[in-house]
Design a protein around this nucleic acid. Sequence first.
DNA 1: CATGCTGTGTAGATTGATCTCCATCGCTCG
DNA 2: CGAGCGATGGAGATCAATCTACACAGCATG
Lengths: 356, 356
Amino acid sequence: MAARGPAGSVTIEDVARAAGVSRAAVSKVIRNAYGVSPAMRERVTAAIEALGYRPSVSARGMRGKTFTLGIEIPELSNPFFPMLLTGATAALSGSPYQLIIAPADPAHSEGYRAIQALVDRQVDGVIAVSPLVEPAWLSELSATVPVVMIGRHDRAEGYDTVVSDDEAGARQVMRHLFELGHRDIAHLTGEGARTRPGSGVPQAIRLEAYRTAMQEAGLGDRISIARAADVTADAHRTALRLLSGAERPTAIFACHDEPALGVLRAVADAGLTADDVAVAGYDGIEIAAHPGISLTTVHQDGERMGRLAVELLLERIAGRTEARHEVVEPDLVVRSSTRPPRPRGAATRLGALGDH
Amino acid sequence: MAARGPAGSVTIEDVARAAGVSRAAVSKVIRNAYGVSPAMRERVTAAIEALGYRPSVSARGMRGKTFTLGIEIPELSNPFFPMLLTGATAALSGSPYQLIIAPADPAHSEGYRAIQALVDRQVDGVIAVSPLVEPAWLSELSATVPVVMIGRHDRAEGYDTVVSDDEAGARQVMRHLFELGHRDIAHLTGEGARTRPGSGVPQAIRLEAYRTAMQEAGLGDRISIARAADVTADAHRTALRLLSGAERPTAIFACHDEPALGVLRAVADAGLTADDVAVAGYDGIEIAAHPGISLTTVHQDGERMGRLAVELLLERIAGRTEARHEVVEPDLVVRSSTRPPRPRGAATRLGALGDH
DNA sequence: CATGCTGTGTAGATTGATCTCCATCGCTCG
DNA sequence: CGAGCGATGGAGATCAATCTACACAGCATG
C-alpha cells in the first residue's frame, strides 16, 4: 500500500529498544516462536510497524534460512521460461519465501555460474533449468541445498525433477503428421550434448521419439534430421537449406516453437505455404495461437511445472528426503500450419494446374 | 568448466588454516587489498583453489557490499523486458557483480514488494522497471541504495533514469499514418495511473503525443481513445468493439506491441485485413518482424537500455552523486500492417466492386 | 645507536539476527 | 510452607566475513 520507508538501517536492536524488550524477544515475535505473551507481541508488533523494521536477510543467512528460493534460467527470451516463473511466483504468493532469478548467460559456462551465484547467496532451495548442468554436479549440490531440476528426465536420487512427457508429446506430433498423410517428415533439432541419447534432455527425447516413430511406420529410410548448433538462432537458415534441397520434406517437426517460428519464416521466404510444407513445433508458446502464425504445437503446461517445482522445494525444506519425480502430460494443439500433403504429382501449383 | 564442488561449508577460517595464515590475510587476498606479499597471495590462492572456497555473500552483506545488483521486473511474459535483461547481464559479464531478478507479480502491490525484497537482500544497486512505483518512494529509497528507473520519464534528483524518447517515437508513428493518408486514427491504451498526464509513464507520453499530433493535424474532433484496464489482456476484446462500432477507424495505434498483437487478432477475427485497418504497435518485440505478423512498430533498443542502467548503477557505486538521465532514440520500423486507407466510398470489398 | 619509516601480517571488534540455555515469576500441590 | 512446574523474557554465544588498529621486522638515516 502506501510507501513504507525502505529498509534504511533500523535493526532488531532499535525495535527492541523502542518496545522496551530484548533483541531475543523481538526475534521470537518475528519468527512466531514459542514463549511470547500477547501483551509483548502487541508491543513489539507496534514497534516494528512504527519503525518500518525489516529483518536483514544477510544476518538471517548467517544462521540458517534466508527465505529465498532461487531459480536459474537460460535465455529468458524464449517465452516458455517466463511461463515457469509465472507458476513459481504464483505458488509462492502468501508464503514467506521470495523467488529470485539468476539469468544464465548461455554464452559462458551456462548454468553453473548462475546456480553458484544462488548458492553463494544461501538460497533455501534451487530450481535448475539449464539442461546441460551435469547430474553429478547437481547431486553433489543437493547434499547442501534442496534442488529441483525442471525439464531434464534424470531420475536422480538426490534431487527432484519436474518434466513434461516429451516422448508422448513427440509421438502425438508424429501420429498427427502420419494421419494427415505425411511420409517425408524432417526433424529440426540441435547438436552435441543437447541431443545425446540417454542425456534426458527434452531435445534428445523428442529426437528419439521422432526416430522411433519413423521406424515403426516403416519409414526408417526417410529419416531426415537437420541439426543446428544454436537451433533457435539458426533455424531459419537451416530450414531454408532443407527446403531448397532435392528431396524437400512435406513436413518439418521442430524440437521447439522458437525454431519452428524460424521454419515458418523460411517457408514464407521460399514462396511456399502450409500446403507445401507442414510445420509443427513444441512447447506451446502463446504466439503460436496467433492467427498470423497458427502453429501446430505440443502444449506443455509451463505454469504447472513452475508451480510443481516450488511445491517440491517447499516439501524438501519441510523435511522430505526421498526423491520425487513429477511428470506433466502435454497436449497436442492442432492448428493450420499442418495440413495434408499435396497429392502426388501435384507438388507445385503449376504442376497442379497442368494435371487437371 | 569441470564441476567444482558447490559451496558446502568451507569458510575463510578453513582457508586461513590451510594456508597457515590469518583470516584477515585471506580476506585481503580476496579483496585485492593492500599489504599482501606475492608469496602469501600465492599460498592463499592455492588454498582457496584446493578447498573450493567461495565467500559467503550473507557474511559480506553484514559489513558492506554483496556484489549483487537487483532488477525488479513486471510481467516477464512481455518480451520487451527480457531484452533489458540481456543488455544488463551483458554489461555485467566479467565484473564481480551478479544480477538477480525479482519478479513483480502485477496482481499484488506491484513493484514495491519486489524492490523491498531486493533491498532486504542488501543488493548494491536497484533497477526498477514497474512504472507505478511512486517517485517519492524511490527518492527515499535512493538515499539508502543507488537506484535506476527504467522507462519512466521522471527527472528525479536522487536517482538516475533510462528512457526511450516516447514522444518522438509516437510522433513518428503518427506522421507515418498521416503520410499514408489516415485520418481516423484510434489509440488503444490503458487506464488510470498508467496514463495520467505528467506521470512520465510511457503510455501517458505516447497518449499525449497521439493527442497532440491529431490536434496539430486539425483532427482534434476525430480523436478516439480506447481504454482497457489491462491493455495486454483486453486488447483483443477492446479492438473488436472498436472495429464493430459505427465509426470504424482506418488505423489503430496501440501503446505497446503486445496489445497490438491482440488488435491484429481482432482484425482477423472481424474478417478484415491490413487494407481495411492499419495497425501500429510500440516496443519492437522480435515477433513483430515475423512475416505472419509483420507489425509496424517503434523499435526501442531494450538491450541498450538495460546496459545503460547497469552502467549508471556502477557509476553510482563508484561514487557519482549527481543524477543522470539517459535518453535512447527509438526507430520507426514500417512493415505491412500499415497500408494506406481504402479510397473513399470503397470502405468494403462489396462497395469497391459496386463502384467501378 | 636511537629513531623513524615502510612493508607485511595479525588480533579483535563489528555487523544483525538466531537460538540455546538460564533466571524469574506466579501458581499449585503435597 | 517449600518444592515443583509452566510460562515468559533475557544474556550471551554464534554465524562468516570486513576492517581498523597495531605489532613487528628490516632497513636507512641523523
